[in-house]
Design a protein around this nucleic acid. Structure first.
Length: 184
DNA sequence: AGGAAGATCTACT
DNA sequence: GTAGATCTTCCTA
C-alpha cells in the first residue's frame, strides 16, 4: 500500500477501500478486519460534509492531507475513523463497518460483548473493538500500530445515500459489499 | 458567554 | 420503533 492509493478523489478512494484490511497492533496482539462499508465526504460543495462550511480547526486535515487518519468524537462518546483522501481535492472517507478477521476474542473484550454479532458493524462500534481513539488523529494510514493493508473482495459493490446525516443524505456516497453480514 | 447540533449506540416498549 | 445519554465544536450575540 502506498500513499498514491489515497491521492484520488474521496469517492473513488471510498470504493477502492472496500476489501482492504484494517490492521491494529495493540499490546502484542494483532487485530484485523476487512473493510465492508465506507462513506465519502467531499469538500465545500458537499452539504453533508464537515468541510461544507469552510475550513476550521476540526476539519483542517480534510483540506491539508491525504493518506492520514482523521479521527473525531461523535455524540460525545464514539470515535469515528476516517482516512483523508485527494491530493488536489478536499475530503475524507469514513470507515463504517469491518468484518472481523483476527483477534476476535480481544475485540469482544474491548466491546464487552460475548458474540461476534454486532461486534464491528458501525463506525462507533469498530473503533471501540479496535481500541482506536484520538491518539491516531493525523497519523499516516500506511504504517504504524494502526494501518491499512491491501485486500480484495468477491462481493459486488453496492451504493446508497449516506446514513445519519441531515443534509446531503440523498447523494449516493455510501459504498458497501452486497450480501456481507457485517454491513451496518 | 451560551446554545444548538451532531458522519451513534443501546435499551426499552 | 423511539428515546435518551453525553460532550466537543462551532456559531451567534
Amino acid at each position: 500500500m502506498d500513499k498514491q492509493f489515497f491521492s484520488g478523489n474521496p469517492e473513488d478512494v471510498a470504493e477502492k477501500l472496500l476489501g482492504c484490511q484494517l490492521v491494529r497492533h495493540k499490546d502484542n496482539q494483532i487485530l484485523k478486519g476487512r473493510v465492508v462499508e465506507t462513506e465519502a465526504y467531499l469538500g465545500e460543495e458537499d452539504p453533508g460534509s464537515f468541510a461544507s462550511r469552510g475550513r476550521n480547526v476540526r476539519n483542517s486535515l480534510m483540506f491539508e492531507t491525504y493518506g492520514k487518519f482523521f479521527i473525531y468524537l461523535s455524540y460525545g462518546v464514539h470515535y469515528m475513523l476516517n482516512i483523508t483522501a485527494g491530493r488536489n481535492t478536499v475530503g475524507s472517507v469514513l470507515i463504517r463497518a469491518v468484518e472481523p478477521l483476527k483477534g476476535i476474542e480481544d475485540m469482544k473484550v474491548l466491546r464487552g460483548k460475548e458474540s461476534v454479532e454486532g461486534l464491528t458493524n458501525g463506525p462507533g462500534k469498530l473503533t471501540q473493538a479496535f481500541g482506536i481513539d484520538e491518539y491516531f488523529n493525523g497519523k499516516s494510514a500506511l504504517g504504524g500500530t494502526l494501518r491499512i493493508e491491501e485486500g480484495c473482495h468477491e462481493e459486488p459493490v453496492e451504493r446508497s445515500g449516506r446514513i445519519g446525516i441531515s443534509r446531503g443524505e440523498d447523494i449516493e456516497l455510501r459504498f458497501y459489499l452486497g450480501g456481507n453480514d457485517f454491513v451496518s
